[in-house]
Amino acid sequence: MKDEILNSINIKQTKKVVIVAMTGRMLMDFVGPADVFTTASIFLQESGLNDGYDVQIASPTSNKKVTTGAGMEILCPISAIDIKSPIDTLIISNYEFREKAADPFEPFYKWLGKRTDKNTRRIASVCAGAFALAKAGLIDKRKVTTHWNLNEKLKQSYPQINVDTNLFFAKDGHIYTSGGVSSGIDMALAMVEEDFGKELAIRVARELVVYLYRPGYQSQFGSLLPSYETSGLSQKLRNWVLEHLHEILDVRRIADHLNMSTRNFTRVFHKQTGMPPAKYVEKIRVEQARKLLEDTDQSLEQIAEICGLGGLSTMRRTFLRLLMTTPSDYRRAFRTPLSDIGLDELYPLDNLNYSGAE
């Protein structure tokens, strides 16, 4: 390990990492990456090779306080806006969405907008932190990611940005963005691997009991269907489609159910949802298949039939195209573990609703 690390670093240089803890309910958004870098530093210092990283948690405001959604108030040693020196890695954790007459974060966004690849080697975000980078004008025309639940909001707020929420984290030049919560750990481990080699990154991952690379494809698994207006056609159709998933649901049959002409229904539906009716039905089929894979012991063949996804091979191709994983791999990753630990009788799966819908 020693020779590999020596070949990949400047022995005398400690890398300054500043993690800005914005207001948010997920402490792991900033604590997770901090643990990755500090753990890497411990191993490097023990080996006598390098001091590794100088990790600093900074507030975005001058009072150095961060009030989290978890009810904790954190007093940071520094304020980001007071930093004038170069930074190796700058990570923005989360974002403040609430509109205020006098935004206390404006000085921070102004400071952030002056951070370039000339004074900061890497600029990154965790979860909603991508909105802070966008507000500061740092990710125009770049490929970025954010938490899957914020995908549409980021696209609508900043149409000049190329948003891809299929990724745990994305890199475009010196800009890095990650999905949410644990995705920040994935991104930080990738940075450690870039800086000091794979062996150190593996050692850190083992210490934190996380994957260096998650099994299967590096993809988030958010809902395939964004939220729509309750009065729209998609919401009116959802329950009916779920009741008839095992049947043939072509455009004509759906239009007849709504007492609309096929042409008018297709036009209105596409305008409201941004997708053709057939694509909407396919995504509902996959969403229901995901729920059955998570919550039941039904075979893959049974789930394919129940959800109208054809045979097993057809369902597999559809999962690969939409989720970049197979049904069997998805089940292994997300299967509800209650039965595995003998709690299925106390907590029947039929009483659980993981989707939050209906």
Rank of each mutant, 00 (worst) to 15 (best):
L150P: 04
L150G: 09
N151Y: 09
N151M: 09
E152Y: 08
E152S: 14
E152W: 08
E152N: 08
E152C: 05
E152K: 14
E152H: 05
E152V: 13
E152Q: 11
K153C: 04
K153A: 14
K153R: 13
L154T: 00
L154A: 06
L154N: 13
L154K: 11
K155L: 10
K155P: 10
K155H: 07
K155R: 13
K155T: 11
Q156L: 15
Q156H: 13
Q156D: 11
S157I: 05
Y158D: 06
Y158P: 04
Y158W: 06
P159R: 13
P159C: 14
Q160H: 08
Q160A: 14
Q160Y: 06
I161G: 03
N162D: 12
D164H: 11
D164R: 12
D164Q: 11
D164G: 13
D164S: 11
T165Y: 03
T165G: 01
T165W: 05
L167H: 15
L167P: 00
L167W: 05
L167N: 08
F168W: 05
F168T: 09
F168E: 03
F168A: 14
F169T: 07
F169W: 06
F169E: 01
F169H: 14
F169Q: 07
F169N: 02
F169G: 13
A170M: 05
A170T: 05
A170C: 14
A170Q: 12
A170D: 04
K171R: 15
K171W: 03
D172W: 12
G173S: 06
G173W: 04
G173F: 13
G173D: 10
H174P: 09
H174N: 15
H174R: 12
I175H: 08
I175S: 06
I175R: 11
I175F: 02
I175G: 15
Y176S: 12
T177M: 12
T177C: 15
T177P: 03
T177E: 10
S178P: 05
S178C: 09
S178W: 00
G179S: 14
G179E: 07
G179C: 04
G179H: 03
G179Q: 02
G180Q: 08
G180F: 01
G180E: 02
V181F: 01
V181G: 05
S182T: 13
S182I: 09
S183Y: 00
S183Q: 00
S183A: 15
S183E: 00
S183V: 00
G184A: 04
G184W: 03
G184E: 02
G184D: 04
I185L: 05
I185E: 01
D186F: 02
D186I: 00
D186C: 11
D186N: 10
M187L: 14
M187R: 03
A188K: 02
A188N: 07
A188E: 10
A188I: 01
L189F: 06
L189W: 03
L189K: 06
L189P: 02
A190T: 06
A190D: 14
A190S: 15
A190R: 10
M191F: 03
M191A: 04
M191V: 04
V192F: 02
V192T: 04
V192Y: 01
E193Y: 05
E193C: 14
E193I: 03
E194V: 04
E194M: 12
E194S: 14
E194K: 14
D195C: 09
D195P: 07
F196S: 13
F196L: 07
F196T: 05
F196M: 12
G197T: 03
G197Y: 00
G197P: 01
K198G: 08
K198F: 07
K198D: 10
K198A: 06
K198V: 10
K198L: 12
